[in-house]
């Protein structure tokens, strides 16, 4: 099912000859996708927040103020204060770092492992392929959130283990996608020719096959970051999150949910930033796919 990529003749030329042109070409197409472009800006903004966030916050996000508990949004506190009287806006700004680093590292880990498995599986075929795909089947057979619950339950709570758990269910999908792409590329002319020249296997995989799969990887990476944020938030909700007392958005959301009836802003703002962030990653992923992945290219 995954190997149905329709290869167009244009991609047949040997890559990396004019990488600059390729990028410009990509940018020219991508620029036209307005939602994706805006999302890209938004993601840049988030990355910036991750870096300078702690320096631009209006209040110390960890400083409690027991005289100003659960205040509604005002000019002082644009997003209101939480159950300890802490400034919600400041917490959200600072929380960008932990939230994004957890989900990005989780997907990165999943991508690396999945890509290697996919390359190996697709290139070698035979029993290697079968074995790897069987493992992926088993991983797929577990509903992903349940897999994550199990992993966190075994490894215990904590940032590192949540990353591992979320990474886990990115592995099979990347393995399959990369395998599919590898199978396509393997039969192509330049690989055949490299092989006939006697290039080593690692070299072929690394120099010729892997670069061809990069666009697909980028697309799915982007989209999966969004999903990973949601998965991490769900784990928080079930009490298995990274660090419930941190300013991680998922943790903020799940910790404040008891206040939904009385102090709606506690639940609303973390929910909103999660929504916008995941939305941005999804739209960006969509845009990238339209441009990079010839299958759905109009």
């Amino acid at each position: 099912m995954m190997s149905k990529l329709q290869i167009e003749t244009s991609t047949m030329e040997i890559p990396k000859v004019k990488s600059e042109n390729r990028f410009l070409n990509f940018w020219r197409q991508f620029r036209k996708k307005k939602p994706a472009l805006f999302s890209l800006y938004f993601v840049f903004l988030l990355l910036l927040t991750m870096v300078i966030g702690p320096h631009i916050v209006p209040y110390d996000p960890a400083e409690p103020n027991y005289n100003r508990l659960l205040e509604f949004p005002t000019l002082d506190h644009l997003f209101g204060t939480d159950e300890y009287g802490r400034d919600i806006l400041s917490r959200i700004i600072v929380g960008a770092r932990i939230t994004l680093s957890v989900s990005v590292s989780a997907v990165l880990l999943g991508t690396v492992v999945g890509t290697v498995l996919g390359l190996v599986s697709g290139f070698f075929g035979k029993w290697v392929d079968k074995a790897i795909m069987r493992i992926c089947d088993v991983l797929f057979a577990f509903p992903d959130l349940i897999l994550a619950i199990g992993i966190v339950a075994i490894l215990g709570p904590g940032v590192r283990n949540v990353i591992i758990a979320v990474a886990f269910f990115n592995i099979p999908s990347f393995a399959r996608i990369v395998r599919g792409a590898t199978l396509e590329v393997k039969e192509m002319l330049f690989v055949e020719s490299a092989r006939s020249v006697g290039a080593s296997t690692t070299r072929i995989v690394w120099k010729h096959i892997f670069p061809e799969t990069i666009p697909v990887i980028i697309v799915y990476f982007t989209m999966n970051v969004g999903t990973a944020i949601l998965s991490a938030a769900s784990l928080s909700f079930l009490g298995l999150g990274a660090d419930p007392s941190s300013s991680d958005w998922g943790a903020m959301l799940s910790m404040s949910r008891d206040y939904i009836g009385s102090s709606f802003h506690l639940v609303f703002f973390p929910g909103l930033v999660i929504f916008l962030t995941v939305l941005a990653f999804n739209l960006l992923g969509d845009g990238l796919r339209d441009v990079l992945d010839p299958k759905t290219n109009d």
Binding site: A233, L253, I260, V267, V278
Partner: peptide, 15 residues
Amino acid sequence: AVSGISLPNFWLGLV
């Protein structure tokens, strides 16, 4: 459509 996948489902449920 994209909004649909971008919402944490427990948040949606509570709302």
